[in-house]
Amino acid sequence: MMINTKGELEDDVKETHFRVNAFKGLVPHRISSLEETGHEASIYSWKLQNVHISPTVILLHQYEHFRNHLIGWSYISEDDIAIKLNDKVILNIKPVFSSIAKKIEASKYILDFKDDWDDEGSLAYSEIVWIHTVKFIISYAEFILNTSKKILEAPEIYHGPNGTIDVLWEAKTKFQLLLNVKEDGFISFYGDDFKNQKLEGVFLSTDFQFSLLPFIVFNF
């Protein structure tokens, strides 16, 4: 919410408007009015080529300081990225998660492994565990976005031991967090700051509370 019940601009608006000058000069893609706030305002959207981001812009005509400034944006769904497996769409994800989508695409190497891929008898990986992994990562990214307005850093997605898949976030010397996804949907995790702070746990990917998971927001 950018306007409080007293009709005043909230502090996050002031912070946001400094970040939007990059969108100046773009041709509006869609225009609609903002009636529900009771303020004289308009919503503009711009479509950025090849970036899959459409900033939604609100111009508050009655506030001199913010006139003709972009003070916020959101993301449209028409350019969602389809995550496919064997030409079948597993899920559609927001364009803002494009870097995660690339890591997911790269992780399909796991499904190419045949039995005895390590010359020591390890078995091939199932599509089920890969799908569990992908769905969890995206739901986690959605949670982070909705909660903090930040984009989850794309993790490395590796094959794990005994048919499982590992999802690894590493922030240089700051912290590491590894989730291990099993075929039955259970996920165990361990993280630390390379010093004394550690956390670990286990949950079922189809039935859990985000509020009990580590909340990782990267600022490299």
Partner: peptide, 11 residues
Amino acid sequence: NNVVNGEIVPA
């Protein structure tokens, strides 16, 4: 196969 993009995987 346990080296991906130059990194040894935890597995």
